[in-house]
């Protein structure tokens, strides 16, 4: 195949570094998330040399402008520039950032542009950097990511009856279908795998409202179950690492 025919160039594209791994002696493979090209893998030649100009720039969680050329799966990074001065993430905010990156690495296929998801990601990082409450940032992003990938959770109608969700009722959430009102007090037997949440949680989630503690807990469990369903059995490293840290 003629390489020149398929060679693409991208200049000054808005993007973020999601993850990097060393490549050969002095280079780096960068997993980047770009606004117009989606997730791309780029080879940064010499980026691990002591005096590489890219060293202090190719960091996750900072808005960048990336230029690269690509003919196949792995593009070649030509330039990376700082695009805005976000305050670096710290502490738990940093772990939240790693979590968002892992979600994108696991669930977003390569070279599948999602401009709205990109904007949601950039906005989430800006809020984490501004020390916004973590739970609201994470739930908002999780919900938007599922929606962008085509799995928007049903939050306002009962999936069985089509009736509007009632705040005071309990609903069992079937990942592929949506919320179904629970009739018994303890939930129906045999649907133990489904997360059961209140109607209020579903409605709060639909409006991105996380003031109520019960909403936060239930929304967390619900989105976790929905994401686990999409991950098909893979576990998230960031979650394991965080749990291990809390044990010490």
């Amino acid at each position: 195949m003629d390489n020149r025919a398929t060679r693409r160039r991208a200049d000054n594209e808005a993007g973020f570094v999601l993850h990097t791994h060393p490549y050969k002696e002095t280079s780096l493979v960068v997993e980047a998330f770009t606004r117009r090209f989606g997730r791309v893998a780029l080879l940064a030649r010499g980026a691990r040399r002591p005096r590489s100009a890219m060293r202090g720039v190719l960091l996750a969680f900072h808005p960048l402008r990336l230029s690269w050329s690509a003919s196949g799966e792995l593009g070649t990074l030509v330039a990376a520039e700082w695009a805005a001065g976000l305050r670096s993430l710290e502490g738990l905010g940093l772990m939240c950032g790693f979590y968002l990156n892992e979600l994108l690495l696991r669930l977003l296929p390569r070279e599948d542009p999602h401009e709205e998801l990109f904007d949601a990601y950039a906005g989430s990082l800006a809020r984490l950097s501004a020390r916004a409450p973590h739970a609201a940032v994470l739930r908002g992003f999780e919900r938007r990511m599922l929606a962008e990938l085509g799995y928007a959770p049903v939050l306002e109608r009962d999936a069985a009856t089509g009736l509007a969700i009632e705040p005071e009722r309990r609903y069992a959430y079937e990942p592929d279908r949506g919320p179904v009102a629970v009739t018994g007090r303890e939930g129906r037997p045999g649907v133990g795998a489904d997360v059961v949440v209140s109607g209020r949680t579903l409605l709060d989630l639909a409006r991105d409202e996380y003031e109520c503690a019960e909403t936060r807990d239930e929304a967390r469990a619900l989105l976790r179950a929905l994401i686990a369903h999409r991950l098909g059995g893979q576990t998230l490293h960031t979650r394991t690492v965080l749990m291990e840290l809390q044990e010490l």
């Binding site: 790693f98 690495l105 490293h237 690492v241 291990e244 044990e247």
Partner: peptide, 19 residues
């Protein structure tokens, strides 16, 4: 170092021994 995306956690870098 801790590297959450690579699954390197507290046990892998002996944080308990450091403490």
């Amino acid at each position: 170092r801790l590297s959450p995306l690579d699954g390197v956690g507290a046990r892998d870098i002996g944080l308990d021994r450091l403490l």
